[in-house]
């Protein structure tokens, strides 16, 4: 089955890295994965987008056509990409006000706040987000993702990033529980 992820936010939030880690985790579980990005001036601070396709089968087309999951860390990315959502779920940072015109199923999670306050480093918001995305989608096991994170993040920051990842999974569990209520 083909699962499509779109990770969006602003340039510099590290969403490309999050996308790469997600794809590598999928490969560690013997799945196929393709990662693409919108690239360019966005990398200097504008709206930014990374996409990951994960599948047990051969992946022919590398881009997301109807994402199963959209991560939006900023109001702008929520507005731009949220409006394009069909069947999938939107995971949006709680700092972003929800728009009733965006009809797709939406989950709010305090990703940026958790990175800044619980972990104490805004820069790991991408890894917190990754944990949330993985937790909610169930696409890869937490253990696999831990390994993928350790492989990719700069030396010396492994512990920091792992706690960010775990925080993300916690947030996913919490919102999952809320959904269940």
């Amino acid at each position: 089955m083909r699962t499509e992820f779109r990770l969006s936010g602003s340039g510099g939030q590290g969403l490309l890295l999050a996308g790469i880690v997600l794809a590598e985790a999928a490969i560690l579980e013997d799945k196929n994965a393709v990662q693409t990005q919108s690239y360019g001036p966005e990398a200097r601070g504008g709206a930014s987008k990374a996409e990951v396709i994960i599948s047990e089968e051969d992946i022919d087309y590398p881009k997301a056509t109807d994402p199963d999951f959209l991560l939006a860390l900023t109001a702008e990315s929520y507005k731009t990409f949220g409006a394009l959502m069909g069947k999938g779920i939107i995971i949006v940072d709680s700092s972003v006000a929800l728009n009733p015109e965006i009809k797709a199923r939406t989950i709010s999670a305090p990703i940026l706040k958790a990175a800044a306050e619980d972990i104490g480093k805004r820069v790991v918001a991408n890894i917190v987000a990754l944990g949330v995305l993985a937790g909610i989608s169930g696409i890869v096991a937490e253990k696999t993702l831990e390994l993928a994170v350790k492989n990719r993040v700069p030396k010396g920051t492994e512990e920091l990033n792992l706690s960010a990842l775990h925080k993300g999974f916690e947030l996913a569990a919490a919102v999952g529980a809320r959904q269940a209520d």
């Binding site: 790469i20 794809a23 490969i27 196929n32 994965a33 393709v34 990662q35 693409t36 990005q37 690239y39 992946i59 590398p62």
Partner: peptide, 10 residues
């Protein structure tokens, strides 16, 4: 091309 050059794949 840009897609082939920049995409990451297994």
């Amino acid at each position: 091309d840009e897609v082939i050059g920049h995409m990451r794949e297994k």
